[in-house]
């Protein structure tokens, strides 16, 4: 096996991978599983069917999906602009995209809350203009998650767009395709898998996000309480088993959704002939 490989170091590489996965991923996750097993099935079920817990699950997953979808659309447009057009300050703008990665999420949350709250710059404009309140409502959570999710989408689409040969578009045009046809039939199928990856990353990050959301959410039970907050609340009451039960459920749901998204991606790739 190792002889047939061109690159040396199969054995150390694979051992390193396994040890790393075990230490960083599998062992902590199994500890969580064990903690949950302190509960009987009935207790676990009682926690999951609790209305407040269910409301927070609906909110966390719903807001994350919406935010990831919006981030996917706008992230695509931004990535397109950054790759295809040149404009003054482009490099600076490009660097700015990564800021949400680097910023401590709590700082992001405080800033977002300050801007979108009913007396804040944007919050006041929107409030006066439309009567819609952003901060301290579920809408505020979506805004925070778009902010957090956007760089994931931009950074996954960008390299693919850079690789994408403009000759293909030119070929499409010379063969008589309209601009719309060229976009839908040539560009989109090539970009879609990367966009879906970006969407999945933004979504996964959104579901678990705590710091940036907590300041803008309002945290009202049944209305604007996200799952991570409920976990913290359980921990504050020394209910470790209850907290891990919610955490585990969240993990399973996220895993299933990500699996679904990966499946979708595979299907898209296959259809567009990339596999």
């Amino acid at each position: 096996m190792s002889q047939s490989n061109i690159m040396p170091g199969f054995r150390p590489a694979i051992s390193f991978t396994l040890v790393y996965l075990a230490l960083i991923v599998l062992i902590p996750l199994s500890a969580m599983l064990l903690k949950t097993f302190q509960l009987s099935l009935d207790e676990y079920w009682a926690i999951l069917t609790n209305q407040r817990v269910q409301a927070s699950f609906r909110l966390s997953f719903g807001a994350s999906l919406i935010a990831a979808a919006i981030a996917a659309v706008f992230g695509f447009i931004i990535a397109w602009s950054l790759v295809r057009y040149s404009f003054p300050g482009k490099r600076l703008f490009d660097a700015l995209i990564d800021l949400p990665f680097a910023l401590p999420t709590a700082v992001a949350g405080i800033v977002l809350a300050a801007i979108y709250e009913p007396h804040g710059w944007i919050g006041k404009l929107v409030m006066d203009g439309t009567g819609i309140q952003i901060a301290y409502k579920p809408l505020g959570i979506v805004f925070a998650l778009i902010f957090i999710g956007l760089p994931f989408v931009v950074r996954t689409i960008e390299p693919v767009l850079q690789e994408f040969d403009t000759a293909m578009e030119e070929a499409a045009a010379s063969l008589g395709a309209t601009r719309l046809q060229a976009f839908v039939k040539v560009i989109l199928p090539n970009i879609l898998p990367a966009t879906i990856t970006g969407f999945a990353l933004a979504f996964a990050r959104g579901v678990g996000e705590y710091g940036s959301v907590i300041f803008i959410a309002g945290n009202m039970p049944y209305i604007s309480e996200i799952v991570p907050l409920l976990i913290i609340t359980k921990l504050e009451q020394y209910d470790y088993a209850g907290a891990t039960a919610i955490g585990l459920t969240m993990l399973i749901l996220s895993f299933l959704l990500l699996l679904l998204i990966n499946g979708l991606q595979w299907w898209v790739r296959r259809r567009s002939g990339q596999l």
Partner: peptide, 20 residues
Amino acid sequence: VPVLDSGARGSTTTFIQRGI
């Protein structure tokens, strides 16, 4: 109560900085 912060300092910020 329009906002339920998780700690006392958070509430102080909401009241003083956010003006809520």
